[in-house]
Design a binder for these strands. Structure first.
Lengths: 330, 330
DNA sequence: ATTTTTTGAGTAAACGTTTACGCAATTAAT
DNA sequence: ATTAATTGCGTAAACGTTTACTCAAAAAAT
């Protein structure tokens, strides 16, 4: 049997209530007994039974985090950021990996919800409707990170629309006029819509009418990059491609290599995300780097705020980080 | 206020105990009331308060998982395997990321322990002594996955010693006689020791006396691979190198490229791990692939076993998966 | 028709912690 | 020296579930 507060109380010759007050540092107690109790707690190897504490307290400090199992290699960075901040502000993180299978998703979410949660954070997840229903029906704050779900729940992400301007401007300044956007042509997720719109508008700003064929590729996957090169053939009808995720850009890079297309001489590539994956390619990828750690930290501070509007949208920083995959063709 | 069992009981005109029996599917109840209760529970949006349940039950079904934040890209695969099995057997996973900072590690572990846990699984972690002490002092089953901590706590991992034989045999058959092992020269972790010993013994089995200089590199990092090439120069004094982790091997690959060393013509590479990272390199890496999903599933089934000895060591499968980084020089 | 067994469901205690309330003892203010 | 305020701590209830015990009613066995 584990040590309880009562065991400590008995040994110290005081009541359990006093021990509780001391260990939680709430209410009144004398420093003398406090020291004795803390010492005993340590000696006896006491661990608070959080379940009991949760039960007796109304306010929860536990934040659930839904992480997709589909290997998004930036999830770690966001979680790390969240953990740092949570640690600092006294919140606890409950991390759950969710599969794409909607059935299992619901089960996982329900098991999360049966802990009394303050909030649920969704990391880069396009949540399925049935799961979303379960979440909204439950009485928890919701927050979407690295994915905008405009006006439905609050979100923290890069400004995907502005980001495309940054990238297009950069490429334009390097002399590029024909550009492709690879991997953001799903109709569905808002992120893809914003990136497409941003891409098109940025081109128009420079007086370039965009070619709809040059927005191609649905899956956020390595294969998408490979396939893109296959589809457009050699020579490519554009001089620069923007990969909508690092893994896609690596596909582009390798596809180009396989097809005898030189990067950056025949094809310039800018990747979106800028995780450490971009550092282990040859040539090193030029990236529009998202600030994932910042997203994580902001997630926690945002949730700490009581009155969070579902319309809240917070944007995090973007840095254009030069690598060796963009040629100046002026 | 959230819906409780009592609310359902009131509405159904029965006692809370009956509702509990029905929802947990334990004890006796009629199918008629059961259906009514289940229907009500669904309608009213009821979620079990797991804290309360935990409190009233002695046996815990919660397994804590310690995951290092140092990006090991196979942790996901192990967790996925664990989650599948846990889901199947009715266990719940509580995942916590731990930093390398020992202070924060302890805090995280303590917060884990204040949930009533059945067990704690350590993923590829060389736990620091103070943290380990906290864990052993607590009354939970421990299990190390993807890392052997011989005879201290039970572990599930690849047979690192045998794995080296598999790799060396393979390279030997391809005609290689001079081989290097990169990234396993830490004195400390047992895994490194076993890999070194396996490497040396396997060479000796083929009548090759090994060159101690050819076991080089400590950090499990990209830079280690890059540095290795720099250190040994061009031409390299060996024809094959074994990278002790995918990320190291990618370092070797890129280092070789930078130095004008052709892979596999001038240097053959076999990588240990075989995560999907090996598929996105050019050339594709030949790998001694560990079965991480299997590790995850076995972790759960092993922990389900009551009497688990600290001496238990379970080995998972290894597959030598040919890529394009090994040349036949016979 | 009686006895035995089974079934459905209620009662109440228990899990470990927190906290509102109260009270005596101490300290401060007059 | 009296009154007022403060301090330290105990009592007891509460949180939501589970479960060992009951017990009446229904079903089965005699």
């Amino acid at each position: 049997m584990a040590i309880t507060i009562k065991d400590i109380a008995n040994k110290a010759g005081i009541s359990a209530a006093s021990v509780s007050r001391i260990l939680t540092n709430r209410g009144r107690f004398s420093e003398a007994t406090a020291q004795r109790v803390r010492q005993l707690a340590h000696e006896m190897g006491y661990y608070k039974n959080q379940s009991a504490a949760d039960l007796s307290q109304k306010e929860s400090r536990v934040i659930g985090v839904l992480v997709p199992t589909t290997h998004t290699n930036f999830a770690d960075e966001i979680i790390k950021g969240m953990q740092t901040k949570a640690f600092e502000l006294g919140y606890e993180l409950l991390i759950a990996f969710v599969e794409t299978d909607s059935q299992q998703q619901i089960k996982t979410v329900k098991s999360l919800l049966s802990r009394q949660l303050l909030a649920v954070v969704m990391l880069a997840i396009d949540i399925e409707d049935p799961v979303f229903e379960v979440l909204t029906k439950a009485d928890v704050r919701l927050l979407s990170v690295s994915n905008q779900l405009n006006n439905v729940i609050p979100s923290i992400s890069s400004d995907n629309y502005a980001m495309m301007h940054t990238i297009v401007d950069y490429l334009y300044n390097q002399g590029h006029r024909k550009m492709a956007l690879i991997g953001a042509s799903n109709p569905d997720p808002i992120v893809a819509i914003l990136r497409r719109k941003g891409f098109i508008d940025a081109l128009l700003d420079h007086g370039i009418t965009y070619n709809p064929d040059f927005i191609w590729g649905v899956e956020n996957a390595y294969q998408t990059g490979l396939d893109a090169i296959k589809k457009f053939g050699n020579p490519l009808p554009f001089t620069a491609a923007i990969g909508s995720a690092d893994i896609i850009s690596i596909g582009l890079l390798n596809g180009a290599k396989d097809a005898g297309i030189a990067v950056p001489d025949d094809l310039s590539i800018v990747t979106i995300d800028g995780t450490e994956l971009t550092q282990i390619t040859r040539p090193i990828l030029t990236a529009a780097q998202q600030n994932f750690a910042q997203m994580g930290e902001l997630a926690i501070t945002t949730l700490a705020d009581q009155n969070l509007s579902p319309h809240t949208i917070i944007f995090t920083d973007i840095t254009l980080k030069p690598g060796d995959t963009v040629a100046n063709i002026n």
